[in-house]
Simulated assay, not measured.
Amino acid sequence: MFKTLVFHEIRPKEEIDLGMRPVIVKNGYVDQLPLPLFNSVSSFEKEMTYLVESGYHFLTLAEVKAFFYEKKSLPEKSVLITFDDCFQSMKTYAYPIIKKLEIPVTVFVATGWIFEETSEYSGKVSKALSFKELDEMSDYFTYANHTHDYHERRGIEASKLMWEDKENVVQDLEKCNEWVKEKDVFAYPFGLYDAENVSLLKDNGFTLAFTTKQGVTTRETNPLEIERTVIPFTMTLDEFKELMTY
């Protein structure tokens, strides 16, 4: 069994205290990232350091696939670290910590959000990175499918993945796969999906897909509905340690 953790924005506490900010992405999608999806730089470093010093095994996607499809066992304390959306703070604040601690990370990329040109970091917006910047972090970050232009939502109940025709969804997934390395691994945008989405992924060769439902992944878990736990900036280190006791 293992747990999967998901992060979005890693920011200094003083930036988080400024509240929600606009999302700025290449395809022009308009939204704001909810504050529970932010984590502070200090908390993130303490959490990752705790995992390293406590002997946790950091999983790769190859190991997760082998767990499900080859019935291979995993080390007792296994964890998969993931990021969604590729905001500037991932490079500015998270990547240096990941590199220092030598942690493999899976990143889900909505390729339609990613810019061609690099721009200066801004604490006032949640702006996506450039493809060049993502390439520069590929020593520790492995990139997987998060749709191309389908990272959109209607409130908190539906994502574009759920209301578009199947043919259009498949074309969008294929577009994202033109860039990402892991072409059979997916994360549901906003964690919003339905049974038809799960079937579509299976029919199109996807082997792993990640939700935002909290829990522990076991052999009984559907590999196209793997649990992921969001780690917010309000979580104390003691609470994090308790979460990771399973």
Rank of each mutant, 00 (worst) to 15 (best):
V6P: 08
R11K: 11
R11T: 10
E14G: 02
R21C: 06
R21S: 10
V25P: 14
V30Q: 14
D31T: 15
P34T: 14
P36L: 03
P36K: 02
L37G: 06
F38Y: 14
V41P: 06
S43T: 14
S43L: 05
S54H: 12
S54Q: 15
G55K: 03
L59Y: 05
L59H: 04
K65Q: 14
K65Y: 06
Y69S: 13
E76T: 11
E76F: 02
V79A: 05
D84L: 04
D85T: 14
F87H: 11
F87G: 12
Q88A: 14
M90V: 14
A94R: 06
Y95S: 00
Y95W: 06
K100E: 11
K100M: 04
L101N: 13
L101Q: 13
E102F: 07
I103R: 05
V105L: 05
V107D: 04
A110W: 04
W113I: 09
W113G: 15
S119W: 00
Y121F: 15
K124G: 15
K127T: 11
M137V: 09
D139T: 13
Y140N: 14
F141L: 10
F141T: 09
A144N: 04
H146N: 02
E152N: 08
R153H: 11
R153V: 13
A158Y: 02
S159V: 09
K160C: 06
L161Q: 00
L161G: 00
L161D: 02
E164A: 10
D172K: 00
C176D: 08
W179I: 14
K181A: 08
E182P: 04
K183R: 13
D184I: 10
V185C: 08
A187G: 11
Y188Q: 00
P189T: 12
G191Q: 03
L200I: 12
L200G: 06
K202A: 13
G205I: 09
G205C: 09
F206W: 01
T212I: 10
T212P: 05
K213L: 15
K213Q: 12
T217G: 07
T218Y: 06
T221H: 01
E225C: 07
P232Q: 05
T236R: 09
M244E: 01
